[in-house]
């Protein structure tokens, strides 16, 4: 089997194992897996901005939140789920363009500053504009979708629905990055100056990457609202943006599967540890963020390419 075929077969096997295996898991574990996949939608999008366009964004949680609030309000008003998703995605895309256009003139750490500020502002609005967002009370009783008469109310059904959607979103991004248009992204990442000389409009592409990344977060937000069935401003604080950024970077920014590894580390692992009653694991849970923080520092020093790049290292070593 060729390498890509082998990789595709492995992916299919993993997705199938997840889809079937979930039926044997506890309700709370299924919830956790679903939550991880929801965050993964946002970090996949962020990877586009950070990994491929090389920009640092600290505002992904704001788009995640905008998506969630748009979904909560629309779903409660009776708008069907299939209509809500594009609405949230387009809203985030447009806001991403509006924010990115002026901010990208200055680039790099300035974009980080601007997106961070944007996130704090969105958080304040979510908390204070009570008539629209429910303020600190949040919005509760957000319905789960029923599509073509099929209800995704149950935890397993919703898990499968989210898994299918995540695979679809992943496939879309994969195709995007492989298309001639998407190859410009890779060129951008690898050598911006050369890309420019080849006629790639850097600003336009970076802006698009940023806005598409924002739209992905918006879609993730829609699934989040429907999963938790309740939202309030807390989860969309800029500290979530920090964690998302760290997830992309420790996983391996600019590598397609990087965010998967990173999101498991920041969402799934700590939650699993939290639930354990074993003494050693309890200790781990208490100190998890300490190890995590130190690991980030160490990773930056020794393995700036992220965890996924480890595989490359081994491969290179074994072939040479």
């Amino acid at each position: 089997m060729s390498a890509p075929a082998r990789r595709a077969a492995m992916l299919v096997a993993i997705v199938a194992a997840l889809a079937i295996g979930a039926a044997f898991l506890k309700r709370s574990d299924v919830y956790l897996l679903t939550l991880t996949m929801v965050y993964l939608m946002a970090t996949f999008g962020l990877n586009l901005t950070v990994g491929y366009a090389g920009q640092m964004s600290l505002g992904q949680a704001a788009f995640f939140g905008i998506g969630a609030y748009v979904a909560a309000i629309a779903l409660k008003a009776g708008v069907p789920f299939l209509a809500v998703m594009p609405i949230a995605a387009v809203a985030c895309f447009v806001i991403g363009l509006a924010l990115g256009f002026p901010a990208l003139r200055v680039q790099h750490h300035y974009l980080a500053f601007a997106t961070l500020g944007f996130n704090v502002l969105v958080y304040l609005i979510l908390r204070n504009e009570e008539q629209v967002t429910g303020g600190t009370y949040g919005i509760s009783a957000i319905p789960r979708p029923t599509i073509l008469g099929v209800s995704f109310e149950g935890h397993l059904a919703y898990f499968h629905f989210t898994l299918a959607s995540l695979v679809a979103l992943g496939a879309l991004l994969w195709w995007l990055l492989r298309s001639p248009w998407g190859r410009a992204f890779a060129a951008l990442r690898d050598n911006p100056i050369r890309a420019e000389s080849l006629g790639v409009n850097i600003t336009a592409y970076t802006l698009l990457a940023f806005a598409i990344g924002a739209a992905c977060a918006g879609v993730g937000g829609v699934y989040y609202a429907s999963l938790v069935e309740f939202i309030e401003p807390g989860p969309f604080h800029f500290s979530t943006s920090l964690m998302m950024l760290l997830a992309v970077i420790i996983g391996g920014s600019g590598r397609f599967y990087g965010p998967v590894v990173g999101t498991i580390i920041i969402i799934l692992l700590p939650e699993l540890l939290r639930g354990s009653s074993h003494e050693a694991l309890k200790f781990m849970q208490k100190w998890y963020l300490v190890f995590f923080g130190l690991a980030v520092v160490a990773l930056m020093v020794w393995l700036p390419g992220g965890i996924v790049s480890l595989a490359d290292r081994f491969r290179r070593r074994s072939t040479s």
Binding site: R27, S28, D29, L35, V228, F230, G275
Partner: peptide, 22 residues
């Protein structure tokens, strides 16, 4: 008695409630 930390976050509290029931 086993206690879990909600981190003062409703989303986490919900997940922990499920866990407690499981």
């Amino acid at each position: 008695y086993t206690s879990g930390d909600t981190q003062s976050n409703p989303g986490v509290a919900k997940a922990l409630a499920q866990k407690a029931i499981d």
